[in-house]
Each structure stands twice: as C-alpha cells, then as structure tokens.
C-alpha cells in the first residue's frame, strides 16, 4: 500500500502530515516513511532514528569519445533535451540537461557516447521503533530530482515487504518530481489550506492527479482561516475530504522545535486517526 502526500502549493503541511501520520501508524504497526522531496528533505528533522544504511546514488550521462566518432549527428538529432549538441567537429554534452534516457548512447552507430556513472546524491535509511525512514538528498549543484526519486522508490520496493504501508512525503508543485513520486501509488492525499492561493494550487494538483489516473482525497490544513471555498470545490467535484486539521498556533510552535504535534493536540490526533482509518479501509 503506497500513499503519497502531495500538494500543489508549498508549505501547506506535507511534512507535518507525513511525519505525524507515520508516528500515529507506528503505534499499532510497522510503517515506512520516505522523504521524496530530495531537493530539500526535512522529514528527518522530526524522525530522529538510528542510521541503518547509507548509499551513494548515481545517474548516468553520456561521455563523448572523440576518437571513434564519425560526427554523423544522430545523437543530437535524438536528444529531446538538447543535452547533446554538435558544434562543427565536436560534440558537447550538458550533464544538467541530460535525462539519462540513453537514446544518444544506444543510437550512436559507433558507440562513441558510452554512459558514465555520475554521483547525484545520497540515500539514508533510519530505524525508530516501528518506523523505517528512508531519505534521499540531492547533491548541491545537481538539477534533476527525478532520477533520485525513482531510485529511492525502487530501493523501497526491493527491500521491504509490500504489506507494510508506505508513506511518500512528496515534493511540492505539479511538475516532473511530483509526477515521479506519485505515478505508481495507490492513493494520493492532497493537503491544502483554505485560502484562495491554496484553492488555486489544489485545482492544479487535482488536474495532475486526474491525468495520472490516481485516486486521491483532500486534507485541509489550518482549517478555520481563509474561507469555505476549498470545501465547496471538493463537494462540487466529489473529492473526499479526509480531514480538517484545525489552525493552531501550538502546531507551529511544536513544528518549529522539530516535535510531533498530534501527541500534544487531541484535535489533531482525532483528524489524523480519521486519515489512518481511511487508509486502513482502502488497504483491506
């Protein structure tokens, strides 16, 4: 069972929900939390586990071999990202633009663009009671989150039993990193805030999830601020609202100290319990 926690707008509570829901699950069963926001992972600030495993992660990029190249131009013709450019008698490769699709390398008639490993980041696995926490972090200067997100999901699939619920703390927005994090999950929780900005970006996220044919529901965070438009929108679109987490200064205070909030605030715990029940109901 794979649950992604995503949002269009940033700062709506993905990490708060991911970490607190994980901790609540862990009271009764084993659970895996993966921080897939590899550009700035922060779930780890709330899960202080013991480091179990560490791996360097690599992507592959083509490297030009001048001595065998016939300058036929096939490589640059097939690169959708203009990461390979022919300039007269030389081939230039731009690693930051490369999506590691292998097209140039595979289609080169003289094998003059072999794919070479390049470090892109690091994966760490932590353990705390019933929680397995996996976090990947992109190296400074690396521009592409997608390959690392993909490899992190693969790591989880290869190392853990499918019976355990997995929670993916996803990147914000609606572009490639979110799509990579949510494309193969069983259910997506879109967390938003009840403001015009929250609603605007929620609509974008909903469109994205429909395009991916994902099942999804909404959690409203900081419920009580703004207006009722998010609720009305969800009703009109028949999108289930799984929980309304009340707005509270105390949540922000606890969050700022790196503490979990549900244990201290019964109203939050009640809402999280609703989400947990919903997920367990989906699972069975």
């Amino acid at each position: 069972m794979k649950i992604a926690i995503a949002s269009g707008k940033g700062g709506t509570g993905k990490t708060t929900l991911s970490t607190n829901l994980t901790a609540l699950f862990s009271e009764t069963e084993k659970i895996i939390l993966a921080d897939l926001d590899v550009e700035e992972p922060n779930s780890g600030l709330f899960i202080n586990g013991e480091l179990i495993q560490e791996e360097i992660k690599y992507k592959t990029i083509p490297e030009w071999n001048e001595s065998t190249c016939t300058l036929c131009g096939e490589c640059q013709k097939n690169c959708n990202f203009h990461a390979v450019i022919q300039l007269g008698p030389q081939i230039l490769v731009f690693p930051e633009l490369c999506h590691s699709c292998y097209a140039c390398s595979e289609l080169c008639p003289t094998d003059s663009l072999p794919m070479i490993k390049q470090r892109m980041g690091q994966l760490k696995q932590f353990k705390k009671d019933n929680i397995t926490f996996v976090e990947s972090r992109l190296d400074i200067g690396q521009e592409q989150a997608v390959p690392l997100i993909g490899q992190t999901i693969e790591y989880i699939e290869n190392n853990f039993s499918e019976d355990i619920v997995r929670i993916f703390d996803s990147p914000p927005g609606t572009s490639c990193p979110v799509i990579e994090a949510t494309k193969d999950v069983d259910f997506v929780i879109l967390i938003t805030e009840p403001t015009p900005f929250g609603l605007h970006d929620l609509k974008l996220a909903v469109e994205t999830m429909k395009e991916l044919k994902n099942d999804f529901g909404v959690v409203i965070n900081r419920y009580g601020i703004g207006n009722n438009n998010v609720v009305e929108y969800c009703d009109e679109e028949n999108i289930p609202i799984l929980a309304k987490i009340p707005n509270s200064r105390k949540v922000a205070e606890l969050y700022s100290k790196g503490e979990l909030v549900y244990k201290e605030i019964p109203e939050v715990k009640k809402e999280l319990q609703n989400i947990k029940n919903y997920i367990l109901h989906l699972k069975n």
Binding site: F81, H82, A83, I85, L92, F94
Partner: peptide, 9 residues
C-alpha cells in the same frame, strides 16, 4: 528544455 544550447547552435 535546452533552448539556450539550441539557439546557440
């Protein structure tokens, strides 16, 4: 992607 390198080319 890659509009800059393409136009430069």
């Amino acid at each position: 992607h890659g509009a800059g390198p393409k136009t430069s080319q």
